[in-house]
Protein backbone atom coordinates (compact mmCIF):
# COMPACT_ATOMS: atom_id res chain seq x y z
CA UNK A 1 0.00 0.00 0.00
CA UNK A 2 2.47 2.62 -1.09
CA UNK A 3 -0.23 5.28 -1.50
CA UNK A 4 -1.57 4.95 2.00
CA UNK A 5 1.76 4.34 3.70
CA UNK A 6 3.57 7.31 2.11
CA UNK A 7 4.44 9.74 4.87
CA UNK A 8 2.44 12.95 4.90
CA UNK A 9 5.02 15.69 5.12
CA UNK A 10 4.11 19.19 6.21
CA UNK A 11 4.06 21.72 3.42
CA UNK A 12 7.51 23.21 2.92
CA UNK A 13 8.05 26.67 1.64
CA UNK A 14 9.95 26.22 -1.58
CA UNK A 15 10.74 29.91 -1.82
CA UNK A 16 12.48 29.99 1.56
CA UNK A 17 14.37 26.79 0.80
CA UNK A 18 15.54 28.30 -2.50
CA UNK A 19 16.60 31.54 -0.87
CA UNK A 20 18.63 29.64 1.72
CA UNK A 21 20.30 27.64 -1.03
CA UNK A 22 21.05 30.81 -3.01
CA UNK A 23 22.59 32.69 -0.11
CA UNK A 24 24.67 29.66 0.82
CA UNK A 25 26.99 30.34 -2.10
CA UNK A 26 29.57 33.05 -1.31
CA UNK A 27 29.38 34.95 -4.65
CA UNK A 28 25.61 35.18 -4.52
CA UNK A 29 25.71 36.23 -0.87
CA UNK A 30 28.24 38.94 -1.76
CA UNK A 31 26.03 40.08 -4.64
CA UNK A 32 22.95 40.20 -2.45
CA UNK A 33 24.78 42.23 0.22
CA UNK A 34 26.13 44.69 -2.37
CA UNK A 35 22.68 45.13 -3.92
CA UNK A 36 21.02 45.65 -0.55
CA UNK A 37 23.74 48.21 0.25
CA UNK A 38 23.28 50.07 -3.05
CA UNK A 39 19.51 50.11 -2.67
CA UNK A 40 19.81 51.48 0.89
CA UNK A 41 22.28 54.14 -0.25
CA UNK A 42 19.97 55.12 -3.11
CA UNK A 43 16.95 55.28 -0.79
CA UNK A 44 18.68 57.41 1.84
CA UNK A 45 21.06 59.26 -0.49
CA UNK A 46 20.36 62.66 1.06
CA UNK A 47 21.35 61.40 4.50
CA UNK A 48 24.36 59.43 3.27
CA UNK A 49 25.92 62.04 1.00
CA UNK A 50 28.26 64.40 2.86
CA UNK A 51 27.18 67.35 0.71
CA UNK A 52 24.81 68.21 -2.13
CA UNK A 53 25.44 66.99 -5.66
CA UNK A 54 26.04 70.43 -6.99
CA UNK A 55 27.61 72.21 -4.04
CA UNK A 56 30.42 74.01 -5.80
CA UNK A 57 33.43 75.01 -3.75
CA UNK A 58 35.96 76.57 -6.11
CA UNK A 59 38.62 76.76 -3.47
CA UNK A 60 38.54 73.01 -3.07
CA UNK A 61 38.93 72.15 -6.79
CA UNK A 62 40.63 68.88 -7.82
CA UNK A 63 41.42 67.81 -4.26
CA UNK A 64 42.81 64.27 -4.03
CA UNK A 65 40.99 61.74 -1.82
CA UNK A 66 41.56 62.51 1.82
CA UNK A 67 39.94 63.08 5.16
CA UNK A 68 37.80 66.00 4.03
CA UNK A 69 36.69 64.49 0.74
CA UNK A 70 37.03 60.70 0.79
CA UNK A 71 36.76 60.40 -2.99
CA UNK A 72 38.31 63.82 -3.69
CA UNK A 73 36.68 66.68 -5.56
CA UNK A 74 36.19 67.41 -9.25
CA UNK A 75 37.14 70.37 -11.42
CA UNK A 76 34.33 72.49 -9.98
CA UNK A 77 35.14 71.54 -6.39
CA UNK A 78 32.14 69.20 -6.04
CA UNK A 79 32.50 66.25 -3.67
CA UNK A 80 32.93 63.06 -5.77
CA UNK A 81 31.63 60.79 -2.99
CA UNK A 82 28.43 62.79 -2.76
CA UNK A 83 27.93 62.65 -6.50
CA UNK A 84 28.59 58.88 -6.61
CA UNK A 85 26.07 58.36 -3.80
CA UNK A 86 23.45 60.55 -5.43
CA UNK A 87 24.11 58.94 -8.81
CA UNK A 88 23.21 55.50 -7.45
CA UNK A 89 19.53 56.39 -7.58
CA UNK A 90 19.73 57.28 -11.29
CA UNK A 91 21.58 54.09 -12.18
CA UNK A 92 19.23 51.85 -10.21
CA UNK A 93 16.16 53.66 -11.45
CA UNK A 94 17.19 53.40 -15.07
CA UNK A 95 18.13 49.76 -14.63
CA UNK A 96 14.88 48.77 -12.92
CA UNK A 97 12.51 50.82 -15.09
CA UNK A 98 14.19 49.95 -18.39
CA UNK A 99 14.41 46.24 -17.56
CA UNK A 100 10.86 46.30 -16.21
CA UNK A 101 9.69 47.74 -19.51
CA UNK A 102 11.49 45.15 -21.62
CA UNK A 103 10.47 42.39 -19.19
CA UNK A 104 6.76 43.13 -19.53
CA UNK A 105 6.82 43.68 -23.30
CA UNK A 106 9.24 40.86 -24.07
CA UNK A 107 7.55 38.27 -21.84
CA UNK A 108 4.12 39.03 -23.31
CA UNK A 109 5.46 38.81 -26.87
CA UNK A 110 7.36 35.58 -26.14
CA UNK A 111 4.43 34.04 -24.27
CA UNK A 112 1.93 34.62 -27.07
CA UNK A 113 4.38 33.75 -29.85
CA UNK A 114 5.46 30.54 -28.16
CA UNK A 115 2.02 29.42 -27.02
CA UNK A 116 0.00 30.11 -30.14
CA UNK A 117 2.76 29.48 -32.68
CA UNK A 118 2.03 29.54 -36.39
CA UNK A 119 1.51 32.95 -38.01
CA UNK A 120 1.44 34.89 -34.73
CA UNK A 121 4.81 33.42 -33.78
CA UNK A 122 6.27 34.28 -37.17
CA UNK A 123 4.93 37.84 -37.14
CA UNK A 124 5.99 38.67 -33.57
CA UNK A 125 9.38 37.04 -33.69
CA UNK A 126 10.33 38.58 -37.05
CA UNK A 127 9.49 41.96 -35.53
CA UNK A 128 11.80 41.10 -32.64
CA UNK A 129 14.48 39.97 -35.09
CA UNK A 130 14.35 43.38 -36.75
CA UNK A 131 14.95 45.07 -33.40
CA UNK A 132 17.65 42.54 -32.59
CA UNK A 133 19.44 43.07 -35.87
CA UNK A 134 20.54 46.58 -34.90
CA UNK A 135 23.53 46.88 -32.60
CA UNK A 136 22.00 47.61 -29.18
CA UNK A 137 23.76 50.95 -28.69
CA UNK A 138 22.94 52.15 -32.18
CA UNK A 139 19.26 51.32 -31.65
CA UNK A 140 19.20 53.13 -28.31
CA UNK A 141 20.85 56.18 -29.87
CA UNK A 142 18.35 56.11 -32.73
CA UNK A 143 15.42 55.99 -30.28
CA UNK A 144 16.88 58.91 -28.32
CA UNK A 145 17.41 60.80 -31.56
CA UNK A 146 13.65 60.55 -32.06
CA UNK A 147 12.55 61.16 -28.45
CA UNK A 148 15.28 63.60 -27.40
CA UNK A 149 17.95 63.12 -24.72
CA UNK A 150 17.14 62.72 -21.04
CA UNK A 151 16.91 60.12 -18.28
CA UNK A 152 13.32 59.06 -19.04
CA UNK A 153 13.96 58.68 -22.75
CA UNK A 154 17.14 56.74 -21.98
CA UNK A 155 15.02 54.30 -19.98
CA UNK A 156 12.58 53.87 -22.87
CA UNK A 157 15.41 53.45 -25.37
CA UNK A 158 17.15 50.82 -23.25
CA UNK A 159 13.83 49.10 -22.61
CA UNK A 160 13.10 48.79 -26.32
CA UNK A 161 16.61 47.52 -26.99
CA UNK A 162 16.28 44.63 -24.53
CA UNK A 163 12.70 43.62 -25.37
CA UNK A 164 13.73 41.07 -28.05
CA UNK A 165 16.08 39.36 -25.60
CA UNK A 166 13.21 38.71 -23.20
CA UNK A 167 10.91 37.72 -26.03
CA UNK A 168 13.37 35.08 -27.20
CA UNK A 169 14.14 33.68 -23.77
CA UNK A 170 10.44 33.51 -22.91
CA UNK A 171 9.44 31.94 -26.21
CA UNK A 172 12.08 29.22 -25.89
CA UNK A 173 10.94 28.35 -22.38
CA UNK A 174 7.26 28.45 -23.37
CA UNK A 175 7.85 26.09 -26.30
CA UNK A 176 9.13 23.52 -23.83
CA UNK A 177 6.36 23.98 -21.26
CA UNK A 178 3.56 24.19 -23.85
CA UNK A 179 3.92 20.51 -24.72
CA UNK A 180 3.81 19.37 -21.08
CA UNK A 181 1.17 16.83 -20.19
CA UNK A 182 -0.13 19.05 -17.40
CA UNK A 183 -0.99 21.80 -19.87
CA UNK A 184 -2.94 19.30 -21.95
CA UNK A 185 -4.45 17.85 -18.78
CA UNK A 186 -5.63 21.21 -17.57
CA UNK A 187 -7.05 21.93 -21.02
CA UNK A 188 -8.88 18.62 -20.74
CA UNK A 189 -10.78 19.82 -17.66
CA UNK A 190 -11.86 22.95 -19.47
CA UNK A 191 -9.29 25.58 -18.50
CA UNK A 192 -9.42 28.71 -20.67
CA UNK A 193 -6.48 30.05 -22.67
CA UNK A 194 -5.66 32.96 -20.34
CA UNK A 195 -5.65 30.52 -17.45
CA UNK A 196 -3.36 28.13 -19.29
CA UNK A 197 -1.05 31.00 -20.25
CA UNK A 198 -0.70 32.73 -16.92
CA UNK A 199 -1.33 29.93 -14.42
CA UNK A 200 0.32 26.97 -16.05
CA UNK A 201 2.73 28.01 -18.77
CA UNK A 202 4.25 31.26 -17.47
CA UNK A 203 5.11 30.11 -13.91
CA UNK A 204 6.87 27.06 -15.32
CA UNK A 205 8.76 29.19 -17.83
CA UNK A 206 9.94 31.70 -15.22
CA UNK A 207 13.42 30.45 -14.18
CA UNK A 208 15.29 31.48 -17.35
CA UNK A 209 13.37 34.77 -17.38
CA UNK A 210 14.44 35.57 -13.82
CA UNK A 211 18.07 34.88 -14.68
CA UNK A 212 17.79 37.01 -17.81
CA UNK A 213 16.36 39.83 -15.70
CA UNK A 214 19.32 39.98 -13.36
CA UNK A 215 21.81 39.86 -16.23
CA UNK A 216 19.87 42.52 -18.14
CA UNK A 217 19.91 44.80 -15.10
CA UNK A 218 23.69 44.80 -15.38
CA UNK A 219 23.52 45.59 -19.08
CA UNK A 220 20.98 48.36 -18.51
CA UNK A 221 23.20 50.05 -15.91
CA UNK A 222 26.08 49.90 -18.39
CA UNK A 223 23.89 51.18 -21.21
CA UNK A 224 22.71 54.14 -19.15
CA UNK A 225 26.31 54.93 -18.26
CA UNK A 226 27.28 54.69 -21.91
CA UNK A 227 24.39 56.89 -23.08
CA UNK A 228 25.17 59.45 -20.41
CA UNK A 229 28.85 59.24 -21.31
CA UNK A 230 28.08 60.37 -24.83
CA UNK A 231 25.65 62.96 -23.53
CA UNK A 232 22.36 61.32 -24.53
CA UNK A 233 21.24 60.09 -21.13
CA UNK A 234 21.12 61.97 -17.88
CA UNK A 235 21.73 65.66 -18.51
CA UNK A 236 24.11 67.84 -16.49
CA UNK A 237 24.26 68.90 -13.78
CA UNK A 238 22.35 65.86 -12.43
CA UNK A 239 24.78 63.24 -11.18
CA UNK A 240 25.06 60.02 -13.16
CA UNK A 241 27.93 57.59 -13.09
CA UNK A 242 28.31 57.52 -16.84
CA UNK A 243 28.13 61.30 -17.03
CA UNK A 244 30.77 61.65 -14.27
CA UNK A 245 33.00 59.22 -16.11
CA UNK A 246 32.74 61.37 -19.21
CA UNK A 247 33.45 64.58 -17.31
CA UNK A 248 36.36 63.06 -15.42
CA UNK A 249 37.94 61.74 -18.62
CA UNK A 250 39.56 65.13 -19.36
CA UNK A 251 41.34 65.17 -16.00
CA UNK A 252 42.46 61.55 -15.81
CA UNK A 253 46.20 62.41 -15.83
CA UNK A 254 45.65 65.24 -13.37
CA UNK A 255 42.95 63.92 -11.03
CA UNK A 256 42.32 60.19 -11.57
CA UNK A 257 39.76 59.99 -8.78
CA UNK A 258 37.09 61.91 -10.70
CA UNK A 259 36.72 59.11 -13.24
CA UNK A 260 37.87 56.10 -11.21
CA UNK A 261 35.29 56.21 -8.38
CA UNK A 262 32.15 56.38 -10.54
CA UNK A 263 33.77 53.74 -12.75
CA UNK A 264 34.30 51.49 -9.74
CA UNK A 265 30.70 52.03 -8.69
CA UNK A 266 29.54 50.81 -12.12
CA UNK A 267 31.84 47.79 -11.94
CA UNK A 268 30.65 46.77 -8.48
CA UNK A 269 26.94 47.12 -9.30
CA UNK A 270 27.23 45.28 -12.63
CA UNK A 271 29.31 42.54 -11.01
CA UNK A 272 26.72 42.13 -8.27
CA UNK A 273 23.89 41.75 -10.80
CA UNK A 274 25.88 39.20 -12.79
CA UNK A 275 26.86 37.15 -9.74
CA UNK A 276 23.26 37.17 -8.57
CA UNK A 277 22.20 35.96 -12.02
CA UNK A 278 24.70 33.09 -11.83
CA UNK A 279 23.48 32.13 -8.38
CA UNK A 280 19.83 32.29 -9.42
CA UNK A 281 20.50 30.08 -12.42
CA UNK A 282 22.05 27.43 -10.21
CA UNK A 283 19.12 27.48 -7.80
CA UNK A 284 16.32 27.73 -10.36
CA UNK A 285 17.55 25.01 -12.70
CA UNK A 286 16.13 21.82 -11.15
CA UNK A 287 19.07 19.69 -12.26
CA UNK A 288 21.66 22.14 -11.03
CA UNK A 289 19.68 22.57 -7.86
CA UNK A 290 19.64 18.93 -6.90
CA UNK A 291 23.36 18.69 -7.64
CA UNK A 292 23.90 21.75 -5.45
CA UNK A 293 21.79 20.33 -2.64
CA UNK A 294 23.69 17.06 -2.83
CA UNK A 295 27.03 18.87 -2.72
CA UNK A 296 25.91 20.91 0.30
CA UNK A 297 24.72 17.79 2.07
CA UNK A 298 28.06 16.08 1.38
CA UNK A 299 30.17 18.97 2.64
CA UNK A 300 27.90 19.28 5.66
CA UNK A 301 28.49 15.62 6.53
CA UNK A 302 32.22 15.99 6.06
CA UNK A 303 32.30 18.94 8.41
CA UNK A 304 30.41 17.03 11.05
CA UNK A 305 32.71 14.08 10.71
CA UNK A 306 35.84 16.15 11.43
CA UNK A 307 34.71 18.42 14.23
CA UNK A 308 38.23 19.47 15.25
CA UNK A 309 39.03 21.09 11.91
CA UNK A 310 38.35 24.78 11.50
CA UNK A 311 38.36 26.52 8.19
Amino acid sequence: MSAAAAPVRPRRNRFLAGARLLLGSPPALFAALVLVGVVLVALFDDQVAPSGANDVDVQQRLQPPGAGHWFGTDDLGRDVLSRVVLGAKVSLQVGVVAVGFSLVCGVLVGLFAGFYGRWLDTALMRLMDVLFAFPAMLLAIAVIAILGPGTTNAMIAIGITYTPVFARVTRAAVLGVRESVFVRASRSVGASDPRLLFRHVLPNALPPIIVQTSVSLAFAVLAEAALSFVGLGTQPPAPSWGRMLAEGRGYVDLAWWIAVFPGLAIVVLVLAFNLLGDGLRDVLDPQQRSALEAARARSGRRRRRTPGRTS
Partner: peptide
Amino acid sequence: IGMVFQDPMTSLNPVL
Protein backbone atom coordinates in the same frame (compact mmCIF):
# COMPACT_ATOMS: atom_id res chain seq x y z
CA ILE B 1 -15.79 13.86 -20.25
CA GLY B 2 -12.85 13.36 -17.92
CA MET B 3 -9.40 12.31 -18.98
CA VAL B 4 -6.59 10.58 -17.09
CA PHE B 5 -3.14 10.80 -18.60
CA GLN B 6 -0.34 8.32 -18.70
CA ASP B 7 2.34 9.70 -16.47
CA PRO B 8 1.24 11.08 -13.09
CA MET B 9 4.72 12.59 -12.74
CA THR B 10 4.09 15.01 -15.59
CA SER B 11 0.33 15.42 -15.73
CA LEU B 12 0.26 17.67 -12.66
CA ASN B 13 1.62 21.20 -12.72
CA PRO B 14 4.66 21.23 -10.40
CA VAL B 15 4.19 24.85 -9.26
CA LEU B 16 0.54 24.65 -8.21
